[in-house]
Nucleic acid binder design. Structure first.
Length: 262
DNA sequence: TAGGCCATCTGGTCCT
DNA sequence: AGGACCAGATGGCCTA
């Protein structure tokens, strides 16, 4: 499937009328659209085309003819477009992996082929970017906690059996005795299993009511945050987490995410 | 119709 | 100098 550009939208095969991708956009004169008109760009807030760009490289900018400037702009736009498309490809790949874990009902087995079940949305709706990222993050945290739990159980088993041999462990695995390895859907979608696992492995961590259970500091601090997957990305649905990141669709976490130094 | 999500354009900044 | 990355702005599409 072509996941580039418009495929992420609802009309995969049709380029957007105004924000047309790639070749089409490049062939259209910029003055065809108000946003491309030099006047509107200069008047738009934050636009410092005539000010700072001249400040930085007066000669190169000034010496460019309008056609050359247009060509340069096209090149830059094309690069940016390609960059974002690559990012979307990677996001799609991640989404593809995470979709089975995003299904809201534990009874419905995850189906990798079924496309994008947005939590709380009708089937066929794909995961949003933010939902995909939050989902992936929590899955990673959960894997870490599962590993912890497995190690703990291994320790218990080996301590109880003593020097008898490696027998019990494979039997336990074959019997499906591991609480968290019964399928991705159960792994992620059953709050009970999450809670019991959390309670058994690290009670201290699970007891600490972090402000954000979804975007906690890390696997060490809060490895077993009881995440309600069906609420991720759903506006106002994150009942377990009061943080602004999980509640708001737009990311705004002033304290935890430092601005990239400029 | 409002709000969410998204793609694209754009200028600024940093890096090579 | 050119490319990569980032964030703001803008407008289109879709759903509740």
């Amino acid at each position: 499937m072509n996941s580039l550009s418009g495929t992420l939208g609802r009309a995969p095969e049709h380029p957007r009328p105004l924000c047309v991708p790639g070749s089409v956009a490049q062939e259209l004169p910029r003055s065809f659209h108000p946003r491309f008109s030099p006047v509107s760009r200069c008047l738009s807030p934050g636009s410092m085309l005539d000010h700072q760009s001249h400040h930085r490289s007066p000669k190169s900018q000034r010496d460019l003819s309008p056609e050359e400037q247009q060509e340069l702009r096209r090149k830059i736009n094309s690069r940016e477009r390609r960059r974002m498309q690559d990012l979307n490809v990677a996001m799609d790949a991640l989404r593809e992996v995470m979709v089975p874990y995003a299904s809201s009902s534990p009874s419905s087995p995850p189906s990798p082929s079924s496309h994008s079940h947005h939590p709380g949305a009708p089937p066929g709706r794909r995961l949003s970017k933010i939902s995909t990222l939050v989902l992936a993050r929590n899955y990673i945290l959960l894997l870490g906690s599962s590993l912890q739990e497995m190690r703990r159980l291994l320790g218990e088993v080996s301590a109880g059996v003593g020097a008898v041999g490696p027998g019990p462990v494979p039997r336990l695995l074959l019997a499906g005795g591991w609480p968290l390895i019964s399928g991705p859907g159960r792994l992620l979608l059953s709050p009970e299993s999450l809670l019991t696992t959390a309670a058994s492995s690290s009670s201290a961590a699970s007891r600490s009511t972090a402000k954000c259970t979804v975007l906690s500091p890390g696997p060490v601090e809060a490895p077993l945050a009881p995440v309600q997957w069906s609420s991720i990305g759903a506006p106002g649905g994150a009942s377990l987490c009061p943080c602004s990141v999980c509640r708001l669709p737009r990311f705004s976490h002033p304290s935890s995410v430092p601005r990239f130094p400029k």
